Simulated scan of single mutants.
Amino acid sequence: MAHVKQFQSILMSKSMRGLCKEEDYAFLGIPKSSIKGYIEGQTTLEDDWRDNKEARVRRRLEREKREQERLKAVEESKKKKEWLWKIHIEDLTFRQEKDLQDRLARLQRFREFQRKVLEEEEGTEGEAASQLLTRM
């Protein structure tokens, strides 16, 4: 049946294709009863093939949809992690700046305390205390 493969690409209606098959089998001398069984078998095979093809297409579309959903979930997770990291860095920076400002304020209070102490001692020691005051 090599001629079936050769002429399969020619477009024609189903009824016309059926007539051609009947004529082929009549030419070959095969009885009509076996032709009808063969044609019914062919249509069943074609229907099965179409059903299988539709099922494959449906499964492929479902796989693509699941993959898109997975990629979307990964992207959202990535964005959430980046947002949490950004918040963490901002909080860490804020705490470090606050610690530095507190430290600066303590140092300034300590320096003021040292100056007061040196100014009080200046009256007693005079020049030694003024040298310390100028060094600071």
Rank of each mutant, 00 (worst) to 15 (best):
W85Y: 08
Q101N: 03
C20P: 01
K81R: 08
L45E: 06
G126T: 02
K14V: 08
V4W: 12
S130H: 10
R50A: 09
R70S: 13
S33G: 03
F113A: 10
L28Y: 03
D24Y: 14
K53S: 14
A128M: 07
H3Y: 07
L92M: 14
E112L: 09
K79W: 14
R66L: 14
G37W: 08
M12A: 00
S13N: 02
R58A: 15
A128H: 10
L71F: 07
K79G: 10
L118K: 04
M12R: 00
E82C: 02
L107N: 07
A2C: 03
Y38V: 06
L84I: 05
A128T: 11
L107Y: 09
K116M: 04
L71V: 12
E120H: 12
R56V: 03
L71K: 09
Q114S: 12
G126V: 01
R50N: 06
L61H: 05
A129E: 14
L19M: 13
E125D: 12
I87Y: 05
T43M: 04
D91A: 08
E120S: 13
E62G: 02
E23T: 01
I35H: 14
K80W: 03
Q6Y: 12
R56L: 06
A73I: 15
S33K: 07
G29C: 01
R70M: 12
L84M: 11
L100N: 10
I30F: 03
D99N: 03
L132V: 03
T43C: 04
D48P: 13
E46R: 14
K72G: 09
L61C: 09
E121K: 11
F7N: 00
Q96I: 12
G123Y: 14
F113I: 11
A2Q: 07
L100C: 10
K86M: 14
E76D: 06
W83Y: 13
L71Y: 06
E46Q: 15
K98C: 04
G123T: 15
D24W: 13
F113M: 13
Q108Y: 01
E97R: 03
R135T: 14
K32I: 08
I39E: 12
D51T: 09
M16P: 07
